[in-house]
Design a protein around this nucleic acid. Structure first.
Lengths: 343, 343
DNA sequence: GCAGTTTCTGCAACCGGTTGTGGTCATCGT
DNA sequence: ACGATGACCACAACCGGTTGCAGAAACTGC
């Protein structure tokens, strides 16, 4: 183990350049470098270069009270949607010199709270909350203490914070329209948990979409899944087929549920799309590799993340701007899991 | 916008408890709380509770010179392997009060360097490098300045740092053994880029495995893919089939390459596993949902991450411990993309 | 040549914690 | 009754930056 000489501080740079550390600080900061003589500024810069000086971010944040860091709360990085949105967030943030601090909540409200506080004590400048629950005391609390927050793919009953999300309602309508256009009339919806904001709004949109086509509730049953998982989707499909064997199309609350449905259809020796058509939601990676490739509503997750980050940065710049809300268009990508019903 | 009163500092707590902030600090820290009278300690604690005091992590790190933060460098979060290992890292770290700071390098050596420095200036206590290149000046540099580093799924030509990785050689042997046991003798390998540590070692292991079965190099061709992507895998397969139409089995450098191969086989109207068997590597999510479900070498990514984190923490505790290296066993999961060759 | 600016740089305080040192006071032994 | 011991706490310095303020030097105009 070689003797570790600690990294140089601004005092070292100042000493080498023969100036006071305050001057060195100003010389190195582009915003203040015009307060110092060009020649000395050059001396400082070259001293910094020689020492390979890297400012201590912690010390800087402590004194400036700005950390250039954003807390990002997501349910679970392992869920295939989130890497995309996180990448979107990071890409947008890094363009402006910001960094993301990630935390997983596993959809546990308590963890959500503790992680939030941990990030606060790390002095993040703001939050992007991509957690799924429809409501949480956290939100009111954060709102009251004036914390900058942007909600991603999740809305609250009252508009406390700006939200960026896909236009789920439009996506649902596109999916239903597609099925109806193919000739389906008995369409089921496997909804996500209504405790989650997406499950709730997509379910509502489904009701409205089928109503728009004058389909009776009796031929358009909704069964709620306990979670956005394959197992839960399979179980729901089992219940659905038991009670409504006559349906010819399924619109799943998301792709994981669709995956479970596909599995269960296979168990029941039902061909997809021959016997029943299937539409998913999200267009997650690899669903185009399934057999049959899944028709699904594409959600631009990367862009979702990027927009959320941008919105948050805007808000940090000018805190009293109205809480604009972004809704990204979604489009249906038609693959091979949908076809006309057998007549 | 409500008036934001800044979060309480330890000085506020001390004032409320009627003690000096040094005393408050000691009272709040379990390691030093026995240096203060039990009664006053209680006063401090309850004052802290009343004010909802949360220590400022930045200030603490600045003075203790320990940030309880680990820098994690990965190529791309969007690559389906990494969410798993990141989760493993985070789970292991959080158990000990540490946090991970993530950065993507996109396999760009320059980005790797700048991200590394950015993390250094954030005063991370150590690094987990899961980037893929076989060598990088960074490593020597980090080694010289005594930075704590653990390499994940990547090795260097000289043993500068502890490494945790899957036992790739064993995995490759298992895959080849399986194919040979099925009766295959003309087995091709679609290797990953040899500039990457995994591509290199798996390729070498393949050579050794086929040699162990006395298969001639002429019947066991290796073609190198430019990258670990589906497209690259498809292109390599095209070349392979042009030059060696007689092969009956393909062992792919990873699952993405296998995906490309599968696609290309389909283009050539070759049935898998009827005409050619296919084995992947990694067992990424959803490869069990392909048609046919992919036979592949399972890599415990979560555990890989967790072990790396643990190793790093151990090393931080006792810096001059020998650089132990962890090699996790890998096992082949046999699904339906492999079968005996047509006789 | 002198008052008034402007430009440049140093001083010192501050951000919010941690920790070494030393002083006060009660307790103890003799 | 008095010095020694130890428990407890306050003081102050420090981590490595940033920034308001003031003073020195140079420069302006008259």
């Amino acid at each position: 183990m070689i003797a570790v000489d600690k990294p140089p501080t601004i005092a070292d740079v100042a000493r080498l350049a023969g100036v006071h550390k305050a001057t060195a600080s100003r010389a190195l900061n582009p915003r203040t470098s015009d307060q110092v003589n060009a020649a000395t500024a050059r001396r400082v810069v070259s001293a910094a270069k020689r020492l390979r000086y890297q400012p201590n971010t912690l010390a800087r944040s402590l004194s400036t009270r700005r950390s250039a860091t954003i807390g990002v709360l997501i349910p679970d990085l392992t869920n295939p949607l989130f890497p995309l949105v996180v990448r979107g967030i990071e890409d947008a943030l890094s363009e402006q010199g910001y960094t993301a601090l990630l935390a997983n909540t596993d959809n546990d409200p308590e963890r959500e709270q503790t992680q939030f506080e941990a990030l606060l004590s790390r002095k993040v400048d703001g939050f992007i909350l991509a957690t799924a629950r429809r409501d949480h005391p956290l939100l009111r609390q954060a709102h009251q203490q004036g914390t900058a927050v942007v909600l991603l793919n999740r809305s609250t009953d009252e508009p406390l914070f700006p939200v960026v999300a896909g236009d789920d309602a439009a996506g649902v309508h596109a999916a239903v329209d597609h099925l109806v256009a193919l000739g389906h009339r008995r369409i089921a919806h496997l909804s996500g948990p209504t405790a989650m904001s997406t499950g709730f709004t997509r379910g509502r949109a489904f009701r409205s979409a089928v109503a728009a086509h004058s389909l009776a509730p009796a031929e358009t049953p909704v069964v709620e899944c306990g979670s956005y998982t394959e197992d839960s989707g399979a179980a729901a499909t089992r219940r659905l087929l038991a009670e409504h064997p006559e349906i010819t199309a399924i619109f799943a609350g998301n792709d994981m549920i669709a995956l479970g449905a596909l599995q269960e259809l296979r168990e029941h020796r039902l061909d997809c799309p021959g016997d029943v058509s299937l539409v998913g939601f999200n267009d997650m990676r690899f669903v185009d590799k399934l057999v049959p490739p899944l028709t699904t509503v594409h959600v631009p997750h990367h862009q979702l993340g990027a927009e959320a980050a941008q919105l948050l940065l805007d808000q940090l710049d000018s805190p009293d701007r109205p809480a604009k809300t972004v809704s990204l268009p979604l489009d249906l990508v038609i693959r091979q899991s949908t076809a006309p019903p057998r007549s």
